[in-house]
Amino acid sequence: MCCSHSFEDKPLPGQKPEAFDITAVKGMKFFDPHVHMTSRTTDDYQAMADAGVVALIEPAFWLGQPRTGIDSFRDYYSSLVGWERFRSSQFGIKHYCTIGLNSREANNEALAEQVMEILPLFVYKDGVVGVGEIGFDDQTAAEEKYYRLQLDLAKEAGLPVQVHTPHRDKKHGTQRSMDIALEHCLDPYTVIIDHNNEETVKEVLDRGFWAAFTIYPFTKMGNQRMVEVVKQYGSERIMINSAADWGISDPLAVPKTAALMKLNGISAEDIELVTYRNAITAFAQSGQIDEADFGVNIDQSAKFEGNSILRGGQQPRVDKSSIIIS
């Protein structure tokens, strides 16, 4: 889930950024286990596919403003397993999702009750690889109530859990999220604690959970810091994601960070683990991920529906350098 933006932490003026050289990671495959494609354009899908992203997970979250009725939730969940999945397949990217009631909207209890009623309709669907993203935001009693209920749902459905950790009072919120998961007898190996930083990672790993890091400008991890984390903690049970959404974020965060790791001498094995393999290992516990599906269209009969001449389900390329639009 995205963040409340702070635009105060701008990069220092005068620093010349190094260009992203995609050749550094050419031929590598990436899995972005947290990205909100519903808020992204087709240009982003194209760029991700070009950079080697072969599969992704779109966690259910809020829409930047609160929903006011149950039908909005239903249509959103159904778009995650429907239209957005199809849109992604047009670019050869396998789209999975996690389904859950996010923490912010857990605070509207009347609506949250109704959401809990429809969640079972979605968590068993094909390609749903977990319950998420759930957890704490303000750390209210209502958030805790629905976090607990959804942990039970995940347990019953045999699904991993993708846990959003709060921006404010982060360290305490992260600890509390883990305590509660253990109270509900979840195996920490099925729980992915998201949005870690240098202050939270050690305990998350020590207690046996997966530690996900969000590379997100200004408000979460920068990827130079991420390189240092991997140097210090290695690659076991660590994964990175972009959490790209409607805010200023970067859907290429995973391949870019892989390139930066390579430039900084991190081994190819470690890079593969934190940018691809670990996310698959964690979420494949759902029984819903088959690597054989990557890089092909989900449905071979799927074709782009427009007024174009497409075959085989691929989006056409637009020559953006041309003034002609035909």
Partner: peptide
């Protein structure tokens, strides 16, 4: 129909 994913549809 209202809650269907692609293959369900």
């Amino acid at each position: 129909f209202l809650a269907a994913e692609m293959n369900e549809l």
